[in-house]
């Protein structure tokens, strides 16, 4: 159970996919025009992520290593298709506003990244909680970006007017450039918070490399970043 809690904390805060790992930037920038869209996209991805992590973890001893990527994609695509039909049937409004980005969940790097780096190496229960943690982390990230963009760009939160009626919305924030501005601003704020916490003595790894490569979503790195980080850390200590 301890392991499961750790996975939740890891996904939500330590390796938050949006603000720390910077994964899944395409839906992050494209669909967060409002808080509802952000939360909807996040939850949809969470469902797919949990299910695919679970199934891939179950099949991890059956899938041969050489064809694991096609196998993962088939699993993920099946769940995305199911979720897409469910959304179309039960929440058509959300289905319309997310549009093309629902089928694109298949190639979301968070889902494939977690399958590759966690679910295919770990038992079912931690994998499920890894999926929940990462998915909720993604949801929180997207909803936060969506809320900021909606408040500034439309004066509303979840469709309710929050700014005084004399407030004139800064339209650029619900257009594409606003996504970059808000994402950069939020990442800057959370980097600052991390720096302050680190100063107070709480150990916060700078990148997602703190736990080593087993829990990292960046499968393209192959341990290079971790090696560089370690070298830098050593260098810093020697200088002291």
């Amino acid at each position: 159970m301890e392991k499961c809690k750790e996975r939740l904390y890891n996904g939500l805060i330590k390796e938050n996919p949006t603000f720390v790992l910077m994964l899944g930037m395409c839906p992050t920038l494209a669909v967060t025009t409002s808080a509802v869209n952000g939360a909807g996209m996040g939850l949809t991805t969470t469902v797919v992520l949990v299910m695919s992590n679970m199934l891939i973890s179950m099949l991890r001893k059956i899938i041969p290593d050489s064809v694991r990527m096609p196998a993962f994609i088939v699993v993920v695509a099946s769940f995305v298709t199911i979720v897409q039909f469910l959304l179309e049937g039960f929440v058509p409004a959300l289905y319309d506003s997310l549009g093309l980005y629902i089928p694109l969940i298949v190639v979301n790097c968070i889902i494939l990244g977690r399958a590759e780096s966690y679910a295919s190496k770990n038992p079912v229960l931690p994998s499920v909680f890894d999926g929940i943690g990462m998915g909720l982390g993604f949801t929180v990230g997207l909803t936060a970006i969506g809320i900021v963009r909606e408040v500034i760009g439309a004066g509303e939160v979840f469709g309710m007017r929050v700014m005084p009626s004399s407030y004139e919305p800064v339209t650029i924030f619900i257009l594409a450039p606003g996504a970059f501005l808000v994402l950069a601003g939020l990442v800057a704020i959370q980097n600052k918070v991390r720096a302050v916490l680190a100063k107070k003595g709480r150990n916060m790894p700078k990148t997602g490399c703190g736990e080593g490569c087993a829990s990292c979503g960046n499968s393209a790195c192959n341990g290079k970043i971790f090696a560089v980080e370690n070298e830098e850390q050593k260098g810093r200590e020697e200088q002291k």
Binding site: T171, I172, F173, L175
Partner: peptide, 8 residues
Amino acid sequence: CFLLISFT
């Protein structure tokens, strides 16, 4: 351009 896009 920021203002032009925001407050056309």
